[in-house]
Design a protein around this nucleic acid. Structure first.
Lengths: 129, 129
DNA sequence: CTGGCCCTTCCCAATATGGGAAGGTCAAGG
DNA sequence: CCTTGACCTTCCCATATTGGGAAGGGCCAG
């Protein structure tokens, strides 16, 4: 199958498939006319990548997970370690976002939101520290 | 004062100050030798930008907030609207990260994490949907 | 054989920040 | 007076991810 069908079946855009090939994440076989040719196995790999990306894994992590997935003799410990490190990073980022939202919500609560120019949000942004 | 001191006093790197000037977020006066020259007012503006960035405002929002801050006749309604829209975006992003972390944590909990190759994390990433 | 769709490569865009090279300027001290 | 080191300048490149679009070639049905 050509790149368009592989894209449709994997949920990864053709643009991204070419990109993943360019950065060495996946390989590609070419037919006589230069078109990329894919099989079921490639579609499965692309789906794997998409799911990992959906979980927020950066491509470098995806590269490692993919190597582990394709290694019949891998140890699950390595996968678990990678996953838990990523969970911690995700949760820390989520906390930081919630803290930002909370402080901004607090500032907004004290801004009357009418035609007057006073606004504690701007006052806070202008603080000296 | 030169860019180095303005950077140290505002907490914005010299690199970023030049960038903010390049994209028209701030202006700059040059002395005879071509060096950028800043005053107290500029340091306050840079600090304003840094605080807004710390709260996660993208630069385009910062541009609008800055205009509102510098406008003596602004209405606080606009600031509040911008802030609350941003709060909603932050919270939605935080939720999405927490959902990712939860599902990954769930998968990791069922991965024994030893020398055996079986691992539900990889199995899930390889699923067909 | 022609129209329309698919494929190719290559360039550019956005987000924000930083590294580093090559060269100009200025102040202090030998 | 000249050297040295710290500071400044501009310009290019890099990160990570995805997409838009142009220019050109391939392939099949009507």
């Amino acid at each position: 199958m050509n790149i368009g069908e592989a894209a449709a079946r994997s949920g990864v855009s053709a643009k991204m498939i070419r990109h993943y090939e360019a950065i060495g994440l996946i390989g590609a076989v070419r037919s006589a006319n230069g078109y990329r040719v894919y099989g079921e196995r490639d579609v499965a790999v692309l789906r794997f990548i998409r799911h990992a990306r959906d979980l927020g894994f950066p491509l470098e992590d995806v590269r490692r997970l993919l190597a582990l997935w394709q290694d019949r003799n891998r140890a699950s410990a390595e996968v678990k370690r990678l996953a838990l490190a990523h969970v911690a990073a995700l949760e820390s980022k989520a906390d930081s976002l919630r803290r930002m939202a909370a402080s901004l919500r607090h500032l907004a609560a004290h801004c009357h939101g009418d035609d007057r120019p006073d606004c504690p949000i701007l006052d806070d942004l202008a603080r000296k520290d």
